[in-house]
């Protein structure tokens, strides 16, 4: 037989357990909503559930040297927090009409820390390209179509480190 304080403690433990289990399960409702919303740490885990088209559009950064040779620029020139976070931030900057601000920021970053490329990058662009997945993975790396959102020339190289606030998407 449990004592009265033990019974009360067990009831509290049971209530806390049910609350936590319920909280983990509640996001399931999002699957039935027209516009599901994700959260943290209680999520409905939508990753890997999306339907992917055969042709996908992506927004990214490219750089050019004086001869016009094109290079892919790492996402880290646009911001911090990992590839997927910065990828979304780039898309959002373009959608908000702030591609030129982002591009100028990336150009300043490139001027400050040159990417590891055979020649010096002097111009950067924020672009969206469409790719056929099957062809891309077969080695055809060129986009089916591409749209340039903004172009910026890299300023003269600065030797002093950029302040923290300017290291992010402006």
């Amino acid at each position: 037989m449990s004592s009265a304080p033990e019974t009360a403690e067990k009831r509290l433990a049971a209530a806390a357990s049910l609350a936590m289990i319920g909280a983990v399960l509640v996001p399931l409702i999002e699957n039935w909503r027209e516009k599901p919303k994700d959260s943290f740490p209680l999520s409905y885990y939508p990753m890997f559930s999306a339907k992917r088209p055969k042709r996908v559009k992506l927004t990214y950064l490219v750089g050019f040297d004086a001869a016009g040779t094109r290079y892919t620029l790492p996402y880290a020139y646009a911001g911090s927090g990992g590839l997927n976070q910065v990828r979304r931030q780039i898309v959002r900057a373009v959608a908000d009409g702030r591609a030129d601000v982002l591009c100028a920021h990336v150009a300043a970053q490139v001027a400050h820390v040159q990417p590891v490329t055979p020649t010096e990058v002097i111009t950067v662009q924020v672009v969206s390209g469409s790719y056929r997945l099957k062809e891309f993975l077969a080695g055809k790396k060129e986009p089916v179509s591409e749209e340039v959102h903004a172009t910026a020339t890299c300023p003269a190289r600065s030797k002093t480190p950029l302040p923290m606030s300017t290291l992010e998407v402006a």
């Binding site: 890997f48 559930s49 999306a50 339907k51 992917r52 055969k54 996908v56 992506l58 990214y60 950064l61 892919t72 620029l73 790492p74 996402y75 880290a76 590839l83 997927n84 910065v86 990828r87 390209g129 790719y131 997945l133 099957k134 891309f136 993975l137 790396k141």
Partner: peptide, 19 residues
């Protein structure tokens, strides 16, 4: 098919974003 497409999209993203 979805998993396969996800793998392909992920590879594309990584390559175009310099990772």
């Amino acid at each position: 098919e979805s998993l396969r497409s996800q793998v392909a999209v992920d590879a594309l993203r990584k390559e175009l974003l310099g990772s």
